[in-house]
Design a protein around this nucleic acid. Structure first.
Lengths: 194, 194
DNA sequence: AAATACGATATATTTTTCTGGATTAGGATT
DNA sequence: AATCCTAATCCAGAAAAATATATCGTATTT
């Protein structure tokens, strides 16, 4: 049920997972119960507008009304900042998370069979673990891992996996030689989704 | 009640009024009852997320989650298109709406007393009525008039009236001599609102 | 003056959210 | 093996939203 709000809720969930926030932690900040959030995220119930606002505000997101005509432009803006330039490299690699991710990939490989994309992800993760990585970059990695976790069992996981592999690869490149692997277009046309 | 969603709902309402859609017409397109919409708009009840989505989709709006950090940029984008360049001038002046607006201003003047801003609005409206005006421009005018109607009785109507007067003035200038009265910055910093 | 359109309200019924707490199940950590 | 954290689920009850109609006051139109 609740087909219209599906993608919005999925988006909120992705952000929550990428930020490493648990449902419980979020529930406290947003003033809702964990049970409530679980049901919302799993589509068992439809939140009220204000509940959803509370929830997303606690994730540093703002719910906005955008004229349909400029939805692609806004999407472009958002995507552009989701993969920022990443210069400062200070943080520690967060080995736990990498280990978890590598375990996940291993599991996927033996479940669905090995694939070029999975191999690529595995290798890139190994590389990234050994490198000093900025907080922003680590955040991107977390986001990608969370996506991978979410869609591992999904029917059409393949394109998602491919996208994740590409994103990780680009991150790796931008670190390996801090040169222009791709100029990264600021924001432009961006095919609308569903 | 329902303080978080207030501005979102107000925005939806402004768009509805600017587009000249009645609550009834909207209710049919969105699949809600007119009573329902009235209560939502007047803050007597809090819509469910999906109800609100239905409502705003019917207004050619899309509800999006935007990282707080780029809210100003998105606001800028939206505002920039709300006052577009306006070149094509074909439509008819829509005299009915102008007449209605002028009546409103007259009423306000005798109620709250005359003010420089009201005078300016009155004069600009007279000018605009006599000119060939594009659909887009007419849409802007409608939006401004709707705002005026909404805030006429409000406690702090003054700044709103001033803003409306300014917007109309700018529109008038851009028509009078299609020259650069102001280069209109594409989109940039934009002070957040409430 | 009568008809029409608009938005706000009223009422009654049905449905759903939301809370609160408790529990279950899976992984990960120790 | 035992513990901890996360997410999903269940249950009960209170609160609020959604639906369906109908009416009212006011303005505008004919």
């Amino acid at each position: 049920m609740a087909y219209q709000s599906e993608s919005l809720i999925a988006h909120a969930r992705e952000v929550r997972e990428a930020s490493g926030t648990s449902q419980r932690a979020l529930s406290e900040r947003a003033g809702l119960t964990q049970s409530h959030i679980s049901q919302i995220e799993s589509g068992k119930m439809e939140p009220g507008l204000s509940s959803f606002i509370d929830m997303t505000r606690a994730l540093d997101l703002e719910l906005m009304l955008v004229p349909k005509k400029l939805v692609p432009a806004v999407r472009g803006l958002i995507k552009a900042q989701a993969t920022p330039d990443m210069h400062i490299r200070t943080g520690q690699p967060d080995n736990k998370r990498f280990a978890r991710a590598e375990r996940l990939v291993k599991k996927m490989k033996q479940l669905d069979g090995s694939s070029a994309d999975l191999d690529r992800i595995e290798e890139t993760l190994r590389f990234l673990r050994g490198v000093n990585i900025s907080d922003q970059e680590m955040q991107l990695v977390r986001e990608l891992i969370a996506r991978l976790e979410r869609y591992q069992a999904s029917a059409q996981a393949a394109p998602v996996v491919r996208d994740i592999a590409q994103s990780l690869q680009r991150l790796r490149n931008s670190i390996a030689h801090a040169g222009p692997s791709e100029p990264r277009p600021a924001y432009s046309l961006d095919d609308g989704d569903a």
